[in-house]
């Protein structure tokens, strides 16, 4: 980019100052764009932490949910914490094996067939299906017949997680070098054995990281659980029947409440939820970090 000094004397171009100034302005605008995004993010996080931290405690995380009129120092979000953990865990148990199997089909068995490409394409499209549609779907095929339950909520969250897990797992399987597969074929292993004992372990770190991110996403979702668990305030340890509740659903219920206590509990629940999501995200990063460090 540097211009040799002797060229400057016979400079026939327009003066470079305005051009480089424009370029510098563009760079500054890019930085401004980044600032425009982090300022509100920082503001949201600051509000959640400052409003949530004043109410959150061991008691808050375990105590029953009181009436909305109750002041902030009464009760907590115990049933919602429990519901979030149980329902998200169940959704994970449902979605992870299917998601990984589908990824194995796409990457290991499918080849370049039209069907394989179509499944991959539709999995991509499915990641863009609004989460509320998953809730309506499970309502239409399950809740109408079998009633509200944590299981129905887990189905809806599972539908949401499935395409995320498929796409991330597939990317990880793609990174496994073919030499590993060929080596184990050469030893006479069958394709299923090669996949399960060689390919899958080699890609495990990345797959786990993708799963954790999907879990973080599902734990924070409200729309799919609204019509499937029928938000209640009572604790329900049986995920397979009866209405249940989650943190996200409680925040939604409390957000439009006029009572200060209910609002404060909403912020406490928000902080809990954001903390869960952050912990999962950091865990995912740590797992990926370790997976990429280990020699392949």
């Amino acid at each position: 980019m540097a211009v040799a000094p002797e060229h400057r004397k016979v400079d026939l171009r327009e003066p470079p100052s305005w051009r480089s100034a424009k370029s510098r302005i563009a760079t500054v605008l890019m930085v401004v764009a980044f600032v425009l995004v982090i300022v509100p993010l920082g503001f949201v996080l600051y509000t959640v932490i400052s409003k949530g931290a004043s109410i959150i405690s061991g008691q808050f995380l375990t105590a029953p949910i009181p009436f909305n009129v109750a002041p902030a120092n009464v009760g907590g979000m115990g049933p919602a914490v429990l519901g979030t953990i149980l329902i998200t865990a169940l959704a994970t148990v449902l979605a992870v094996p299917i998601g990984i199997l589908a990824a194995i089909y796409i990457n290991e068995y499918g080849g370049n067939r039209l069907l394989t490409r179509f499944i991959r394409f539709m999995a991509d499209v499915m990641t863009g299906v609004p989460s509320i549609i998953m809730g309506l779907f499970i309502f239409a095929i399950w809740v109408i017949h079998f009633g509200y339950s944590g299981l129905a909520g887990a189905f809806a969250l599972g539908c949401l997680m499935l395409p995320l897990i498929i796409r991330s797992s597939e990317e990880m399987l793609k990174l496994v070098p073919d030499a590993l597969r060929e080596a184990s074929y050469a030893l006479g292993a069958s394709k299923a054995r090669v996949t399960l004992t060689v390919v899958l372990p080699a890609a495990l770190g990345g797959i786990v990281s993708g799963v954790l991110l999907a879990v973080a996403r599902a734990a924070g979702e409200t729309a799919p659980v609204l019509f499937t668990i029928f938000t209640v305030t009572a604790v329900n340890l049986n995920v397979f029947s009866g209405p249940n509740t989650t943190l996200a659903a409680q925040i939604f219920a409390n957000a439009s409440q006029p009572y200060v206590g209910a609002q404060a509990r909403g912020w406490g629940a928000a902080l809990t939820l954001v903390a869960i999501a952050f912990i999962l995200m950091i865990a995912a990063r740590l797992v990926t970090g370790r997976a990429t460090q280990s020699p392949r």
């Binding site: 949201v44 729309a223 925040i251 939604f252 928000a270 999501a277």
Partner: peptide, 15 residues
């Protein structure tokens, strides 16, 4: 930037 995506929809709504 990814943190923006980690903040759940309902928390954005509450804020």
């Amino acid at each position: 930037i990814d943190l923006l995506a980690v903040v759940p929809s309902v928390v954005w709504g509450l804020w």
